[in-house]
Computed example of a mutant assay.
Amino acid sequence: MRMSSSAAHVRVSSAVLGIALAAGTAFGAAACASAEPAASTGAPAPAGLIELAHVRVLAEFDESAGQNAESIALEPDGGAVIGMISARQVVRVRGDGGTEVLVTMPVPADGGGTTPVVGFPQVTGVARDQGGAVFFLYSAGRGGLTGIWRLAPGSTEPELIVPMPADTMPNALLIDQPGDRFLVTDSTGGRVWEAPLSGGEPSVWSADPTIAPSGFFGANGLKLHAGAVWVSNYDLGTIVRIPVEQSGAAGPAAVHATGLTGIDDFDFTGRGEEILAALNDTSELVGVAADGSHRVLLDGDDGLQGTTAVVVRGDSAFITNGALREGDRPALRVARLVGG
């Protein structure tokens, strides 16, 4: 069910509690993939907005091991690389649903209790370049661990290529190839950082008030589209558009959509500014029209549990269940884009 604004404090506290509980579990191998189809296609979308159908499970993960799926980087074979929050892992899901753990990050000497807001270390955003290198974010509350890590193709030893300040909470990661830079959201700082693709020191690209937190997380999901950087604000339930100026600097930010309670990650459908957005708090996937209006497309009846991310490729949408606050089936699901 949807949560009213009067329940915001309860919502945030519940989210922190859910994350903390997940952090206390032991970690292990990923569960076997499931080929069973999910339930219905959800509520019908408004006229002109795309619909989703044929929802199926590509892979399920081990909730008891802290494999709470967070972010998605697609691979050429139809599989994906997934960041696992509480397990501190990067997991590969093959196109046939098979899984393998690529990286498990070490626990800091202090246990990671200084990690901003959440109080435990976690792997969040992932990205993949055309050469097959995997990049991921680790937030550990300590310098020398927090930042952007690179895993070279065929390697099992990641390296920290962009160290970020210990008080940041890096969340979403993207590769801006034309700009020769990474872009990273900092959820507790309410900022977007940039850093060279070759590695090195990061700098703040935008700290606009529209992406600031209001009690928990601000800037969360992140996409580059049509000459602008788009950022979701978890606390405010908004999607913000920040134009990229000719110099590469951030232009004036503007709120594009509101009313998206507990929004995490999002992606564009390929039809202009139409968006699919993952709502973590309500376990929903919503379609957001170009004018900012939105409608629920998939929900718990379709097997969603703590929806964390969505990535679109062609006519397929890849969706992760984090299952942090509710449920016990973190998973990667795939749905078909139809109609509209």
Rank of each mutant, 00 (worst) to 15 (best):
D235F: 05
A289D: 04
V134I: 14
A278I: 09
D208P: 06
L279I: 01
I175D: 12
I148R: 06
G200C: 09
G227P: 10
T238F: 01
G112V: 08
P213C: 01
R241L: 04
G48D: 08
R191S: 07
A20P: 03
E70R: 10
A80V: 09
N233R: 02
L304W: 01
T114D: 15
V296K: 00
A228W: 02
F120W: 07
L222I: 09
L224H: 11
D176K: 10
D299V: 03
T124C: 12
A73Y: 04
M105C: 03
G322F: 03
H225F: 07
G24R: 13
A249P: 06
A331P: 05
G248L: 02
Q177W: 11
R94W: 00
A33L: 10
V184F: 06
I275E: 06
G28E: 10
G112D: 08
L174V: 15
G221M: 02
A289T: 00
W149K: 08
P106G: 13
S203I: 02
N68Y: 05
A335R: 00
V244A: 10
A207R: 14
E63V: 15
L21H: 12
P44W: 02
T282S: 10
D302R: 07
G42R: 07
D281W: 08
E63C: 13
G292K: 05
F217H: 15
A80L: 06
G78E: 02
V286Y: 00
A20G: 13
E70I: 10
V334F: 01
V12P: 00
R94H: 13
F268L: 10
G143M: 10
G189A: 13
T185C: 06
R313Q: 07
S214M: 14
A166I: 06
A38K: 14
G78S: 06
G300C: 05
R56D: 02
P252D: 15
F136P: 05
S6A: 13
D267K: 00
V192N: 03
A254S: 15
H294T: 09
E100I: 02
P163C: 09
L332V: 12
V310A: 02
S34Y: 01
A212E: 15
Y234K: 11
S64M: 12
Q89K: 08
W149C: 11
Y138K: 02
L173T: 11
